[in-house]
């Protein structure tokens, strides 16, 4: 089975792991956090504030804000735009993402 990488060739400069909900996910420099999650087969990383429904990346270009996630304690970051960095801790987000404030 072919992979996207086969199409463009080459290799990432560096690889590392991303901490997601206690799991270590393989990540490459230059990937967005959403791309790292998709690579690991994860398509949902937050739940909505009314229905508690699972959501992940939808528009892929930063317009829909469905991929909001908490990164290093900072809530409501767009996973589809934010580059993954070594040492990042990504936390699945519930509701407003501001539960800690109450």
């Amino acid at each position: 089975m072919s992979e996207p990488r086969d199409l463009v060739g080459g290799a990432p400069e560096t690889s590392f792991t991303l901490d997601f909900d206690g799991r270590k996910l393989p990540a490459h420099s230059g990937q967005s956090i959403a791309a790292v999650l998709w690579s690991a087969g994860i398509t949902a990383w937050r739940t909505t504030r009314q229905g508690g429904a699972p959501r992940g990346a939808f528009c892929g270009i930063g317009s829909c804000y469905d991929c909001l996630v908490t990164v290093n304690g900072r809530p409501n970051q767009r996973a589809c735009l934010l580059p993954a960095r070594p040492g990042d801790t990504v936390t699945p987000q519930e509701g407003t993402g501001h539960g800690a404030l109450v």
């Binding site: 791309a35 690579s39 892929g60 270009i61 589809c80």
Partner: peptide
């Protein structure tokens, strides 16, 4: 996902 979204994620992140 958005059709354009899938393509954007593929073009930028090499993921499906």
């Amino acid at each position: 996902v958005g059709a354009g979204g899938a393509q954007a994620m593929l073009k930028a992140g090499l993921v499906l």
